[in-house]
């Protein structure tokens, strides 16, 4: 088994990690699983396509632009689909239904706007192939690794050093206490949805050049959701580890066994780990949120 396979796995794993982070942070802050989170990946990838095509901005700047636009979309979605349910203290299942509804609206909306055909990013983004330590790697793979690492560092700094980030952690710890402390909890939750969607959108733009952009790539969200669970749902380090692990397991499995069984291998490992450690790799004791 060559190192190149591991690197390929890590590259896809980075995408899973970025999406899984969004799932986890939204869950941690609001107690709600945003099943439509995968659609922020779709919209991000498609927005990226349009931004690159229409504005001709460099890839890096397009990423930043998509980060912002996806974030705004996330905030809007929270306002429309989740806040009314949360504020009225409706049963949690209503939030699930609402997020499934959002999947349909966003995926079909994307199809209306961008059409049903897969769209390919400009080939130049794929970068050049080069040899390193006897392996062939694309420079784009290294970009994905670097950008993901950068985003993780920025997220850490944001959560630990800014008052807004600290407020987010406080809301995640206890919504009740955050309210009593005077934190504007609704605003923080809305921002968390925005940040999660921004990460999803960036993941979409990073993913599209190695795949394609289309209204239906949001299914990658499902696998990332699995990665978030694998790492311990609601745990940031867990989401990253789960994503990377899933990517590598998938890559190794599909080359050593068969790529036909790629998903079966990935989910098989997931089930095995969860049987051994039901709360996930980084999960703590099973308990209800306060």
């Amino acid at each position: 088994m060559s190192l190149a396979i591991i690197i390929n796995g890590l590259v896809v794993g980075c995408i899973y990690s970025l999406i899984a982070l969004g799932f986890s942070m939204i869950f941690k802050a609001s107690g709600l699983t945003n099943f439509a989170h995968g659609e922020s990946v779709t919209i991000g990838a498609l927005l990226g396509f349009t931004v690159l095509k229409v504005t001709g901005l460099p890839f890096g700047l397009s990423l930043v632009l998509v980060f912002i636009l996806s974030g705004l979309l996330g905030i809007l979605i929270e306002k429309l689909a989740y806040r009314p349910i949360r504020v009225k203290n409706a049963p949690e299942i209503n939030g699930v239904i609402s997020s499934v509804g959002m999947i349909l609206i966003l995926a079909n909306g994307a199809m209306l706007v961008w059409g049903a055909e897969p769209l390919a990013y400009p080939a130049s983004i794929g970068g050049s192939l080069f040899q390193i330590l006897g392996m062939t790697v694309s420079s784009y793979s290294l970009w994905i690794l670097a950008i993901t690492a950068l985003l993780m560092v920025v997220l850490q700094v944001f959560l630990n050093r800014t008052m807004l980030g600290k407020s987010m952690r406080a809301v995640a710890d206890s919504m009740l206490l955050a309210r009593l402390t005077g934190i504007k909890v609704d605003r923080i939750i809305s921002l968390t949805f925005g940040l999660g969607a921004a990460f999803g959108g960036v993941a979409g733009v990073l993913f599209a050049p190695i795949y394609y952009a289309s209204f239906d790539i949001g299914v990658i969200g499902l696998k990332s959701f699995a990665a978030a669970i694998l790492g311990g749902y609601g745990n940031m380090a867990g989401a990253v580890t789960g994503g990377l692990l899933l990517g590598v397991v998938e890559a190794v499995g599909s080359t050593t066994i068969s790529s036909v069984y790629k998903d079966a291998i990935a989910y098989g490992i997931l089930i095995m780990i969860l049987l051994l450690k039901p709360s996930g790799l980084f999960g703590h004791e099973v308990g209800r949120r306060a």
Partner: peptide, 17 residues
């Protein structure tokens, strides 16, 4: 208290508000 925040962060948040 917010258990995952430090003592200082707990106080900072309350003061910021």
């Amino acid at each position: 208290v917010f258990p995952s925040l430090t003592v200082k962060e707990n106080l900072e948040l309350a003061a910021m508000v």
